[in-house]
């Protein structure tokens, strides 16, 4: 297992070790008994097997006593497991914790951090894609949501995994005890881009985190706000950063090389192309990007589409 960085991961690792010791010993014993029988009781000429039906305690105990041991070991594992499980999942998220919102969608993770006021849903919130920043040695109270299908928030180093469901907010918590950058993955199949759904967890000291937050806070324009709400910005950045899909910056009017049914051709990005790519995104795929965008047919009304075109025009030239 990768190095543990969470407060509860140590307990989980201990439980794993307990089960490993018990099951490896039992497994070796059982295999040894099996192979012993095979070697010891091979057929030999003139041999006669013994008529044993397993009726009555005198015979049945050879099976039932080992089973009693199994029951005892099961009980031990149950007790330990219930304790660890309750620590991780049923003890409620501390209300004083550092709140973050984690949103899964095809095929990216969006994270909402509280600004200096330490509250979500206030104007100073900082939204990022693909990077979750949390303070070291703080209880982090997360709200987990999904925009479209099931996803699963999976951080091996935290020993934490939790499915995200559309239409529901799942509360949970963790506490990171080591600074560094760690992988976040999606562990529930969510479509063609499932394996692209990686993100990073950045654990840093509270002061460093605050400095980073301050550098990030910039209010969204009206078009940007709409795109953010629709989930577009999870895959398409507005500053030229390459994500799952092409960045919106400098996109308008550009000659793009696209793959249409596996054949390369040149296309100018104009209103018709954008419209077509929203309705049937896998028809013309920009070279170098995976064909995984879900169709947006019917998801933008005329006014929103006009906003999108307006926005793309405003991003035509690099700032």
């Amino acid at each position: 297992m990768p190095p543990n960085i969470s407060s509860f991961g140590g307990e989980l690792d201990n439980l794993t070790m307990l089960i490993t010791v018990i099951s490896v010993v039992c497994l070796i014993l059982a295999e040894a008994v099996l192979f012993y029988a095979l070697v010891r009781y091979r057929k030999h000429p003139g041999g006669h097997s013994r008529y044993l039906t397993g009726e009555g305690w005198a015979q049945a105990r050879w099976v039932l006593l080992p089973v009693l041991v199994v029951v005892a070991l099961d009980f031990l594992i149950d007790v330990q497991n219930t304790r660890v499980w309750n620590d991780i999942k049923t003890s409620s998220a501390p209300s004083s914790g550092y709140p973050v919102r984690i949103i899964g969608q095809q095929f990216a993770w969006t994270f909402v951090h509280p600004g200096p006021d330490a509250q979500l849903d206030t104007p100073d919130d900082v939204t990022t894609v693909g990077e979750l920043h949390v303070p070291l040695m703080y209880d982090v109270a997360f709200e987990l949501q999904a925009r479209d299908v099931l996803h699963s928030f999976w951080v091996p180093n935290l020993r934490l995994k939790q499915d995200a469901l559309p239409g529901r907010t799942i509360q949970g918590w963790f506490r990171a005890e080591k600074t560094g950058t760690y992988d976040i993955a999606c562990a529930e199949i969510c479509g063609g881009g499932h394996s692209l759904m990686g993100a990073r967890l950045v654990v840093s000291k509270k002061e460093d985190l605050n400095a980073w937050l301050a550098s990030k806070s910039a209010p969204l324009g009206p078009g940007e706000k709409m795109l953010d709400a629709k989930g577009c910005l999870a895959c398409h950045s507005t500053d030229g950063t390459k994500r799952v899909g092409p960045s919106f910056q400098g996109l308008w009017g550009r000659q793009e090389t696209v793959l249409t049914n596996g054949v390369e051709r040149q296309v100018a990005v104009d209103e018709a192309y954008v419209k077509h790519s929203l309705d049937d995104p896998t028809a013309d795929v920009v070279k170098g990007f995976p064909p995984v965008m879900p169709s947006q047919a019917g998801k933008l009304n005329d006014e929103e589409f006009a906003q999108l075109i307006e926005f793309l025009k405003s991003k035509e030239k690099a700032p």
């Binding site: 041999g47 097997s49 044993l52 397993g54 080992p66 099961d74």
Partner: peptide, 20 residues
């Protein structure tokens, strides 16, 4: 695991003192 332990152990016990 308990009932299946009984079944598997019984099957293994079937081998003991047999002519395999």
């Amino acid at each position: 695991s308990v009932p299946f332990a009984v079944i598997i152990f019984s099957l293994m016990a079937t081998l003991f003192q047999g002519q395999i």
